[in-house]
Design a protein around this nucleic acid. Structure first.
Length: 423
RNA sequence: GGAGAAAUGGCAGAGUGGUCGAAUGCACCAGUCUUGAAAACUGGCGAGGGUCACACCUCCGGGGGUUCGAAUCCCUCUUUCUCCGCCA
């Protein structure tokens, strides 16, 4: 969420830039400013009343000590009125503060100046396209057919055990999954990210920290009994490492990577485009997360993009990079690059990574700060990206690498799989 | 799951109703000394709100209560430790 002080000082600019998201932010910004002013006014009143109360209490103490009980009791009577005031003002203050917070939760991040205007994914700006388009043979199949043909992914079995969207990987399919995870983690650690193994369930505070709560609880699986949520991405436990943390400046930058399964309810998704591996309730992903000095975060974003790009190149998959337009930009992001891989047999682009700079939007909620060179606490910037999400990478490998007598394994994965062909 | 103990600043650890945002030690920062460092000495050293800056207000695991006044008393929740049970 945005800082109130930032809104106070930049309201005009914010409203202007929000138009990129197709949002007229004027009314909500005005409301924030009004509530904020009222809140501060009440705070001042409350503080003054409390100060009076404190002085009075001290006096009473001193009077009792010096044996002037009568005088003390006289003063005591005066406190009841102050107490009443404190109580009512406090209540009003809480109401205003709550109202203010509720508004702040609803305001998305301010888009970076690079973000193009637009309504939907059709308006995203393609910044790069690279890799060779495969020439498939005539009897080429989409991955869900290949999965069946070579007996490597069993969607029906997943249906039986759990339900739709929980596929079972078998034999070389399972091995390929494991190989991809290991390969991604290796690439990420080579690039300087520290590997973490993170919990797959998180508590409510963590959900709030990264913004899944209070609004998007419908997207997560909720374990009612213990009030825990299954993570929709490693971003949630990974970023919450830094909740309520004050770093020293020389600890920056921080880069971590982790593999986790991801659980998403995907309520409302349906149809042919969710076929096979394209959209699942449980899938695997390797994530990269960075905590950066505000002056360095865009540099970091570029290096993350370059890193993901490098992996896709090594896998020799045709890909493109999109700079998301305002309409497609996620709530917390200031600038996002999506990576899409071409899935030859489906003849469509599949999103395999999304790399974002959240600036201080997340860290404000998380209270993730660092002590800057002036000795003051300043919000750090957070970034994250997939490096990479497995299912669609797997889908495109299966489809793009298929030949008439089997599916070849990308060169870089062979050391991890131990085989070079699925047949 | 049962029984008991505990939760205080970066860490350790005092503090059981007022003068406590909190002793002391360590760590850290700055200065003196030194060619430099160490040691010694001097000073500083939690966070949020508020202010031009002060003042002032809030925070001693979270929430609630008693009281003129709570780190200190009461209730409740959470977490940690010890013992028992269960267990990959």
């Amino acid at each position: 969420m945005l800082q109130v002080s930032y809104i106070r000082e930049n309201s005009e600019d914010i409203v202007k830039r929000m138009t990129v998201r197709n949002i007229d932010a004027q009314p909500i910004i005005d409301a924030v400013l009004t509530f904020d002013e009222q809140r501060r006014k009440l705070q001042t009143t409350l503080d003054a009343t409390k100060a009076e109360m404190n002085t009075l209490s001290k006096e009473i103490g001193n009077l009792f000590k010096s044996g002037q009980a009568e005088k003390a009791n006289e003063l005591k009577n005066k406190t009841s009125e102050l107490k009443e005031t404190i109580k009512t003002v406090e209540q009003q203050l809480n109401e205003k503060a709550d109202a203010l917070n509720e508004l702040l939760y609803k305001i998305p991040n301010v888009p970076n100046l690079l973000v193009p205007t637009g309504n939907s994914d059709e308006d995203n700006l393609e910044t790069l396209r690279d890799g060779k388009m495969p020439q498939l043979h005539d009897s080429a199949l989409p991955h869900w057919e290949l999965a069946k043909k070579y007996n490597i992914i069993d969607f029906e079995l997943g249906n039986k055990i759990t339900g739709a969207g929980f596929p079972v990987y078998k034999g070389k399919g399972a091995r390929l999954q494991r190989a991809l995870i290991a390969y991604f983690l290796d690439k990420n650690t080579e690039a300087g990210y520290t590997e973490y193994q993170l919990p797959h369930l998180v508590n409510e505070a963590s959900g709030f920290g990264t913004g899944q709560l209070p609004d998007k609880e419908g997207q997560m699986y909720h374990v009612m009994e213990d009030n825990l949520y299954l993570i929709p991405t490693a971003e949630v436990p990974g970023t919450n490492i830094f909740r309520d943390v004050i770093l020293s400046e020389n600890e920056l930058p921080i880069g971590i990577t982790g593999y986790t399964p991801c659980f998403r309810r995907e309520a409302g998704s349906y149809g042919a485009h969710v076929r096979g591996l394209n959209r699942l309730h449980q899938f695997d992903k390797v994530e990269i997360i960075r905590v950066e000095h505000p002056s360095k975060s865009y540099e970091a974003l570029d290096s993350m993009v370059a890193h993901v790009q490098d992996i896709l190149k090594e896998l020799e998959l045709p890909y493109r990079i999109l700079r998301l337009c305002g309409g497609d930009l996620t709530f917390a992001s200031a600038l996002t690059y999506d990576f899409e891989v071409f899935s030859a047999a489906q003849e469509r682009w599949l999103e395999v990574s999304s790399v974002s700079n959240f600036e201080s939007f997340q860290s404000n909620r998380l209270k993730l700060r660092f002590k800057n060179s002036d000795g003051k606490n300043e919000l750090a910037h957070t970034l994250n990206g997939s490096s990479l999400a497995l299912p669609r990478i797997l889908a495109s490998i299966l489809e793009n690498y298929q030949t008439e007598d089997g599916i070849k394994v990308p060169e870089v994965l062979i050391p991890y799989t131990g085989f070079d062909k699925i047949s």
